[in-house]
Design a protein around this nucleic acid. Sequence first.
DNA 1: GAGTGGTCTAGACCACACG
DNA 2: GTGTGGTCTAGACCACTCC
Lengths: 256, 256
Amino acid sequence: MADHSSIDDAVMAGRAASSAAYSPLYQQIKALLLQSLDQGEWKPGEAIPSEFELAARFNVSQGTVRKAIDELAADHLLIRRQGKGTFVATHNEAKVRFRFLRLTPDDGKVKPSSSRIIDCRRIKAPVDIARLLDLRPSDTVVNVRRVLSFEQTPTILDDIWLPAVVFKGLTAESLTRYRGPLYALFESEYGVSMVRAEEKIKAVAASDDQAGLLNIVSGSPVLQVERVSFTYGDRPMELRRGLYLTDRFHYRNTLS
Amino acid sequence: MADHSSIDDAVMAGRAASSAAYSPLYQQIKALLLQSLDQGEWKPGEAIPSEFELAARFNVSQGTVRKAIDELAADHLLIRRQGKGTFVATHNEAKVRFRFLRLTPDDGKVKPSSSRIIDCRRIKAPVDIARLLDLRPSDTVVNVRRVLSFEQTPTILDDIWLPAVVFKGLTAESLTRYRGPLYALFESEYGVSMVRAEEKIKAVAASDDQAGLLNIVSGSPVLQVERVSFTYGDRPMELRRGLYLTDRFHYRNTLS
DNA sequence: GAGTGGTCTAGACCACACG
DNA sequence: GTGTGGTCTAGACCACTCC
């Protein structure tokens, strides 16, 4: 065997009598791949080894590796490209930028966007934030406040909380200098890949200060979006409370 | 061959020189299964033939049928149950009722719901409705208006449009008599299976009459949800404009 | 025990990208 | 041409359900 983990033991376990908790081989392979992704063995945008190489490494057939990769691709952690290879998903790509932003112009036309950082400070985590981010209340969080505009029209007011331990060098200055989706920045600068997110949406009336920042009249109905984003292994890494202006935009969703 | 369609020609086409539009065998099988579903060969809740039977019918290997079924199961058109068979998805089942309703109580507790039909009438399709339902403006639509309450609290005001040709016997009386999700009724009474839906969401201020029906003060911020539901073959079959009260509920969504 | 879906394998061949 | 993912097959065996 080479220097990477063998799954022989796991195979035995999986194939042992039906008494033990049964887990199919390809699920075990999937877990190993996930682990390699989490540990950064392959970086976002890079290609992972070919199916045959992985099959050899794990001592399973190519079809079994294939099925593991299939699931990771279905979850958008990996991207398959016929003839080229299988790549680690990234937010640093024109095609999938703003992958998590569901706000769409009513007329469908793509609009140029710009971000204005209002604030970036470190604070002790408020209890509700700490709970959602799986932190202790004594932990420090980075709190970023910003306004996103489309065609010079303020449209989104975001309040963002991040574990300070992970996002060490993050400052208002570095944020202001950066152009592009935050998740792309998190990926390349802090090694944090956001993989999944959950949102809770309400309609609320804008408060005075919120209305001021969005340049609307106080009390206007706005969309309130609370998002928790997760990295590999379903670890929460960002809490975002956004206010969306929906007079010329809408939040789109597909049910199935 | 039996009396059902053979795919031999399709196979030849698919396997012919790379000049023609190439379509994998399992995709062709998928299309055939979809057709059978659409034509009602197997009804919602029923089991479809086993993988081996289907493989024999279509003259392909079991693995190829399997892959076709896999995709239909991933789209929630079919449901696999190990040891029992593969079943046509249905809204008539405790487990998946309100499958398309994303509104959730903030406290997570399930609440008893009741529906009050306000109105059910047939009208000439307004142009915007006709366009979304892929109808001609001269076509007739059924317009249903109802209020959904949770624990006696009015929470959702729905305005629903349906092609009148399809929903022939639908009246306020039959709707009032019925308990349960509308999609379950559509399925069992009108043979219409809703398979997918697209929603556009905005935050708006409730108008006077809307506020009256929801028992809130006029101008309150509410969630406006426009939903187009599709049946097999991506044919639009319902337009629904809903107003959701989100003071004690929220719209939940998962991004990935 | 019989039938169904689920896993795993091994091998052949096809479509696609790149040099 | 070579290497990658994608398809298709055939067969063995496993897990689950029901009788």
